[in-house]
Amino acid sequence: MSIVRTLSSPVIVAPMAGGPSTPALVDAAAAAGSLGFLAGGYLGAGELDGQMRSVHGGAYGVNLFCPQRAASSVELAAVRTYVEQLGPSLSRYGITPADLIGRLRTVDPTDAFAAKLEAVCAARAGGYGPAVVSCTFGVWNDAEVERLHGHGIEVWATVADVRAVPPAVSAGVDVIVVQGPGAGGHRATRTVEETPSDVPLEVLAGEVADVVDLPLVVAGGLGTPAEVAAALRWPGVCAVSCGSALLLADEAGTSQPHRDMVRGARECPDTAVTRAYSGRPARGVRTGFMTERTDAPAVYPYVNAVMGPVRSAAARSGDHDLVAAWVGTGVPHIRSGPAVDILRWLTGTGEA
């Protein structure tokens, strides 16, 4: 039986790469009777191992990105052109296009997947590893899924389109995470180039339930007790995964600029999907930069790598226009406070 069917709380804490996911947030999920995820994306294998060793609350999950293909010379040229056009925006931070273009030589499109897979398996063998590993941006091959199963680890696949389901089932995954268009951060498209589906989450979950007999976890824009309760009544759905709802939790590692922008968006909710900050479609607080730069090439993670220093410099200077504040459409309902309280509110067992 999948662990998702044994949880006393049906609201899972989704992985949020780049800082918001922390061992403390994972421990809080366990305290609420749920399951929390560490976000392995962008971490080195050693960093991930350190986070796994810091989890003390019981069963938890780890999310890893599927390796992406290396960019072609034509794609790299498109990224260089994009960076060069940012010149006026960069000068205020003392950054030159050449500084950023130089970073292209160091990009690892696999996100150190092999080393992190090894770290996860070693951690499980050592008694401190995850019960679940989920994949995003594709599906792992049969051998990788079998290796995780061999260590007693469940494998969950995140899909944003019903067409991604058969490959996941064929690979032997245990749970399908269905991600709808209201999700914050990057959409779990199989390829960088494809445009994310705008099929509503309820419809997409129904389509997936029609073609697979596996437990479903649904995610994307669910931010109130009523929305959670409704989603749990959909066919095949065993749990709801919430990420944006925990961005302002005390235990989240969300940066201060990110927190400030989310708080502002609660009062004037306006989110949009953009490639401007990373090259891959992602939803966040709408900024002038993402509105103006609709020409970002679909070359992830290369655009993400060159934009990283720009986002960091903007955050330090208080220039929110160049900060990627990922958040979903449920932003008006995001609460601050202890994660346990937020999770209990979402399940209807806490204070209104």
Rank of each mutant, 00 (worst) to 15 (best):
G253W: 05
L76D: 05
G223H: 03
A245C: 09
D142I: 12
G33S: 08
A252E: 00
G318C: 10
C242H: 10
N141K: 07
A160N: 07
I176W: 00
S134K: 02
V331P: 07
S170N: 09
S9N: 15
T96F: 07
V107L: 11
R80S: 13
T96K: 12
A45T: 07
F289E: 05
V74K: 14
H149V: 07
F289R: 05
N141W: 05
G36Q: 09
G57S: 08
R266V: 04
F65Y: 14
P309L: 04
V285A: 06
A315V: 13
I334Y: 14
G318Y: 09
D108S: 11
V331F: 10
L247E: 11
P281T: 10
Q85V: 09
G36M: 09
P257E: 11
R53K: 15
V303F: 03
G236P: 01
T291G: 01
D319T: 04
A30E: 10
T274M: 10
W345V: 08
S73N: 11
A296N: 11
T349I: 14
Q256A: 14
A157E: 06
V340D: 02
L48S: 02
R147L: 14
A315I: 12
L35I: 12
A272I: 02
T347F: 08
T349W: 08
Y300N: 04
C238I: 08
A30G: 15
Q256W: 12
A305T: 12
A31P: 04
Y128K: 02
G152R: 00
A314K: 05
